Simulated scan of single mutants.
Amino acid sequence: MIRLKLYTTLGCHLCEQLEALMVTLCDTPYRLERVEISDDDALVERYGVRIPVLVDEAGQELDRGMQPERLAEWLAARGWLDEAAWQALQRQLSGETLSGVTTRVAKGATLRGGRRYLG
């Protein structure tokens, strides 16, 4: 089992997004230690504008891990990426269904050239 730290703060929706992506994309059992940065001024100074920050056992950090591409790359570099789940998520993010039909990405948004645009 791998041990990871997540530098976070109460009510961080981006941290929740990262945790949900971890459940989907990580194929290796892991334990996630949540570190509340608001309890320590030094942690607020270091991580305040970068959370969520995910840290592996070697101390390698990933900030902005709520971005699926960044998290997938970070997990793949460590051999922890569930490739099938990543491919399925990429199809979902691009708006492509299994039948190859393109749909809207999210309510009010479309995907063009890998970027999401509102309405």
Results as ranks from 00 to 15, higher is better:
Met1Leu: 10
Ile2Leu: 15
Arg3Pro: 07
Arg3Glu: 15
Leu6Trp: 03
Tyr7Ile: 04
Tyr7Pro: 02
Thr9Cys: 12
Gly11Asp: 04
His13Val: 05
Gln17Cys: 13
Glu19His: 10
Ala20Gly: 02
Leu21Ile: 00
Leu21Pro: 03
Val23Tyr: 07
Asp27Ala: 14
Leu32Trp: 04
Glu33Asn: 08
Arg34Val: 00
Val35Arg: 04
Glu36Gln: 10
Ser38Leu: 13
Asp39Cys: 11
Asp40Gln: 12
Asp40Phe: 13
Asp41Pro: 09
Glu45Met: 15
Glu45Gln: 15
Arg46Ile: 08
Pro52Tyr: 05
Val53Tyr: 01
Glu57Asn: 09
Glu57Lys: 10
Gly59Cys: 09
Gln60Trp: 11
Leu62Tyr: 01
Gly65Ile: 02
Glu69Arg: 10
Glu69Gln: 13
Leu71His: 00
Ala72Phe: 02
Glu73Phe: 13
Trp74Tyr: 13
Ala76Thr: 06
Arg78Asp: 03
Arg78Asn: 06
Leu81Ser: 02
Asp82Leu: 09
Glu83Tyr: 05
Gln87Ala: 04
Gln87Val: 10
Gln90Tyr: 02
Arg91Glu: 09
Gln92Asn: 02
Leu93Cys: 04
Val101Trp: 02
Val101Arg: 03
Thr102Ser: 06
Thr103Glu: 01
Arg104Ala: 07
Arg104His: 00
Val105Asp: 04
Ala106Ser: 15
Ala106Gln: 11
Lys107Ser: 02
Gly108Lys: 08
Gly108Phe: 02
Gly108Pro: 01
Ala109Tyr: 12
Leu111Lys: 10
Gly113Gln: 05
Gly113Leu: 09
Arg116Val: 08
Leu118Asn: 08
